[in-house]
Design a protein around this nucleic acid. Structure first.
Lengths: 338, 338
DNA sequence: TTGAAAGCGCTAACAC
DNA sequence: GTGTTAGCGCTTTCAA
């Protein structure tokens, strides 16, 4: 604590550090921002002064001067902020970490974007760019953000008319892996339980399974092809898939559905992994799917979060939006259910 | 588009609006910030100019000048960012909305706070204050935030040595309501299924039920008192609570537990709401608890989010931290399960 | 390698 | 009721 002037009157500013180190504010700035052209001795003195004063750059001042907030907006649909949505909460955590690794903060929004009124919403101001997840090409939000003049990146797919700033998994390829695994295990009679909803990933998952099976001359018979909702699934499952005429293997479009099939199979007296193979999709640590562990497609969550964050930041820094999206590899987690 | 000078070179600034309206920047500022002392005519001209230019205040400049970011940090424990945690995702949505109503943005953090190293973390800079949820008195995070010189408010309880900036429900009182309802329905033989974890709310819920029952000379017998975890619950439930010697009513410490009891009761051939009464706690729209609807204690989520946000902001604006916390009323949602 | 001057866009304090 | 001046804390530009 050297009494160099105005100590302890609010947080230390760059001039306080400069005075303490006997250099100019500019030099302190150069050290703080790791710019070259500072001699080792000076750098050391400045770092000591920073330590001494507890200096932390004032974000507002930096932001005003550089025109960058180093904050990314994350828009989460109302619909994804409800119970029983395993993905959003997990991916949110990944995005926070990914943003932090890239030295950015994540600001969350949920006010409708691109629907009925709402512009970019006055509340979204100050963001350098936006991140979205669970986005399909009909999602109005990318357009709304683009119209506000902000860069964005999504986990999912963007509309064709916008920059293809997306990261996604190849759902069809992932299901092909599942099929390969099940064929390996000797299964030849396949059932499928998926969602009836219109999003492309539901279609792609089913298609991926069907196409790989077709390559082996196998078809999923209509009676074992269930397109349903989580609520309605239970009934059709036991009726269509677990009767006396049943498949060797049931491929499911999500872990939640697989958990239902598992439960129903057990109730029907079948041992999953022995009497019948069951696979899921997502491989999030869903409590119901714990024992036996479910064979499932693991999403590359950390890699996806990093990629999405990198993608916005790259545009923020002026590099052009990519001409094409990026597919991230999935990993088949083999459990006891197959 | 009047060519008054430097149009369309970046976003409009306050001087552009001032020029357009023929007033000084200060007057524009007064209009934007709803300060008194602007004549109606001037205000109208300024508003027109704002519309015309598409002016939006620069957050960084405002922040630098006023020393307020109008951003609240929300710290979410890693542990609460995982599947099977219904509360965090729902409450996050409520907090975003509450912050927006109070004209603030919500910045999410998950980097450890107050544990092993980590200070307030360089990444938390720029926040006016912090919000936390699911906090019990042993949580190290309030201390870490207070040490960083920031105001905070929590949903839960703060340690006794810190400002009592908390909002909570009265768990015991809520359970007393549940008991009253069940007594009303004529039940006299009670079982209880709760979590064995050490957090005060688990204890308070059980205690609240026991105390109100005691007022009526009723005790929960040891054999019908199950303290367990979500994973281990299933076994003890059917064994202890649903055999031939079973209670009229089972009070559960959470909806997830109640959903399990419901499922097991059905499996045992009992009709919930007829043969046995079952109550939950939380009343989040948990998919498993849909049919029949569960009688459960509804948390005042929106009110709690508003209260927590108000509580931080009040301290940010210099009003002293409250001497005591605030209890919010719960509401008993009566469903078909009782 | 270092420093001085200027200014990012806004508002507090005070003058008119 | 409205305008002027100054400055929040930092970095960009240019000079030494």
């Amino acid at each position: 604590m050297t009494a160099t002037g105005r100590e302890s009157v609010g947080p230390a500013r760059i001039v306080d550090v400069a005075r303490e180190a006997g250099v100019s504010p500019m030099t302190v700035s150069n050290v703080v921002n790791d710019r070259s052209g500072v001699s080792e001795g000076t750098r050391a003195r400045v770092l000591a002064a920073i330590e001494e004063t507890g200096y932390r750059p004032n974000r507002a001042a930096v932001q005003l001067r550089t025109r960058r907030s180093r904050q990314l907006g994350l828009h989460v649909s109302r619909r994804h902020l409800s119970v029983g949505q395993p993905f959003p909460i997990v991916f949110l955590g990944e995005l926070i970490d990914a943003a932090e690794r890239a030295d950015h903060q994540l600001v969350v929004f949920t006010h409708p974007l691109g629907e009925e009124g709402s512009g970019a919403g006055p509340a979204t101001s100050g963001m350098d760019g936006f991140v979205l997840f669970i986005v399909d090409p009909s999602d109005p939000r990318p357009r709304a953000i683009a119209d506000a003049g902000l860069p964005f990146a999504v986990f999912g797919r963007t509309p064709p008319s916008l920059p293809q700033a997306w990261v996604d998994i190849d759902n069809a390829a992932a299901m092909a892996d599942v099929v390969d695994h099940l064929l390996d295990r000797g299964h030849r009679r396949f059932g499928y339980v998926g969602y009836g909803e219109p999003e492309y990933w539901h279609r792609d998952r089913l298609r991926g399974a069907q196409e790989r099976l077709a390559e082996h001359g196998i078809e999923i018979p209509e009676r074992w092809l269930v397109r349903t909702s989580l609520e309605a699934a239970r009934a059709s499952i036991s009726l269509d898939l677990l009767g006396s005429d049943r498949p060797d293997a049931v491929i499911c479009g999500s872990d939640s559905l697989a958990a239902l099939v598992l439960a129903e199979a057990r109730r029907a007296g079948l041992t999953p992994g022995v009497d019948i193979a069951i696979t899921g999709f997502d491989a999030l640590p869903l409590p119901q799917a714990e024992a036996p562990t479910l064979t499932s497609v693991a999403m590359p969550l950390t890699a996806a979060a990093d990629a999405v964050v990198r993608l916005v930041i790259s545009q923020i820094e002026g590099r052009p939006a990519p001409a094409q999206g990026e597919f991230l590899p999935t990993h088949l987690r083999v459990g006891d259910s197959t």
